[in-house]
Simulated assay, not measured.
Amino acid sequence: MSLLDSPLWRDGFTLFLSIVVQAMPFLLLGVFLSGLMAVFVEGSQLARFLPKGKIGSAVAGGALGFFFPVCECGNLPVARQLVIKGIPPHVAVAFLLAAPVFNPVVIFSTWIAFRNMPELVAYRVLFSFGIAVAIGLLFSVQKDLEPLLQPAVWRELQRNRCQEAALKSTSRSPLLQGGTFWIGSQSPAQGASGGSLATLQRAEEVYRAALAAAPALSWRQKGLLLLQTWAREIRELGSVLILGSAVAAFVQTVIPRSFVLDYGQDALVSILIMMALAGIISICSTVDAFFALSFAATFTPGSLLAFMVFGPMVDLKAIGLMLTLFRPRAIFYLVLLTFQFTLVGALAINYYCS
């Protein structure tokens, strides 16, 4: 019997297709929203609607998921555009983690699955939102954003910042602070001298005049730009989704289900198993509640909650998609913090319900 005819291969390929089919519509929805944002929304417009404080902006970032009802496959393109448009990364992190659960579609599907356990629905929403905001606040401590972001995202962010700064009519332009934007390694003291300052001012005036004189894009040009943006996002994110789905399907087929069921009633081990299962199987948050329901008779309430909180935030395909926005070190801290918060919350529920 060839490998292609083996039951293991068929099961793995079926799982792979099911993960891709579940995730692709939401990835396409996220790409659609992010493309519209990239072409038609200015970063300054987005920033005006955010509270100024770190706590308020992190809460707003988490709540933003309610208006973008997509799972973890679709919120990454939106989060990446938020960062590129100049929204602080900690706001994008809060959105990235909260959006897969804190949206009307997932809340409704969870209630349909666990309508006999309404407290589990409330815990899922509250825990997911609270963990997302807490991690967002921890990321807000990082002052230098470059170590967090992928080089391509960082360069695009810097380009957008420079363009928006040049268009602002302020008495002291951000481009002139420090006197090093237009002329290599010149020191602030040199930038403050008369000749150098005049050179910088003339350079900025030329740059601002060039941008102001540039003709506005026609609707046809915007349409072409939108199509190009969609194609690039689908090419970059779709390939990562396929790879992550393949890894998730492979790991699922080699872990015996009997091993999982043997430890379902242990307060700690059951949580660890369900968190590992959530990270591996990579089910979209819109349907994962029905999967968790199949374990309700054999696993602890805290472990079911951990599955539905941890999985939408961190799974194999989500980590792959995050790599298009954040550097591996930032993702490591994000995964570690999510794991710790979820474990503590799920343990509290197990001991509270026992």
Rank of each mutant, 00 (worst) to 15 (best):
residue 207 Y to I: 00
residue 175 L to M: 11
residue 171 S to P: 01
residue 217 L to R: 08
residue 202 R to S: 10
residue 177 Q to T: 12
residue 212 A to Q: 15
residue 166 A to L: 14
residue 172 R to E: 15
residue 179 G to E: 03
residue 219 W to P: 04
residue 166 A to S: 15
residue 206 V to L: 04
residue 222 K to C: 01
residue 187 S to N: 06
residue 216 A to E: 12
residue 160 N to R: 13
residue 185 S to V: 07
residue 183 I to A: 10
residue 150 Q to M: 06
residue 164 E to C: 08
residue 186 Q to P: 00
residue 220 R to Y: 12
residue 205 E to R: 08
residue 218 S to Y: 01
residue 211 L to C: 02
residue 223 G to Q: 01
residue 210 A to I: 03
residue 171 S to N: 14
residue 154 W to K: 04
residue 229 T to V: 08
residue 216 A to W: 00
residue 169 S to N: 15
residue 217 L to M: 12
residue 165 A to P: 00
residue 168 K to N: 12
residue 187 S to K: 05
residue 226 L to W: 02
residue 218 S to V: 10
residue 193 S to K: 06
residue 220 R to I: 13
residue 203 A to T: 14
residue 187 S to E: 12
residue 181 F to M: 01
residue 197 L to F: 11
residue 191 G to M: 05
residue 206 V to T: 07
residue 225 L to T: 02
residue 192 A to W: 10
residue 172 R to M: 14
residue 171 S to C: 11
residue 152 A to W: 02
residue 153 V to Y: 06
residue 162 C to G: 06
residue 161 R to Q: 14
residue 194 G to E: 06
residue 195 G to N: 09
residue 225 L to I: 03
residue 216 A to G: 12
residue 211 L to M: 08
residue 197 L to H: 07
residue 180 T to F: 13
residue 223 G to I: 01
residue 180 T to V: 05
residue 157 L to Y: 14
residue 194 G to D: 03
residue 171 S to K: 15
residue 183 I to T: 10
residue 210 A to E: 05
residue 223 G to A: 03
residue 204 E to F: 00
residue 190 Q to F: 07
residue 229 T to F: 00
residue 151 P to V: 03
residue 218 S to W: 00
residue 223 G to S: 03
residue 181 F to V: 01
residue 164 E to L: 13
residue 225 L to K: 06
residue 224 L to A: 12
residue 172 R to W: 12
residue 157 L to G: 04
residue 176 L to Q: 13
residue 164 E to F: 11
residue 158 Q to C: 10
residue 183 I to Y: 15
residue 186 Q to K: 07
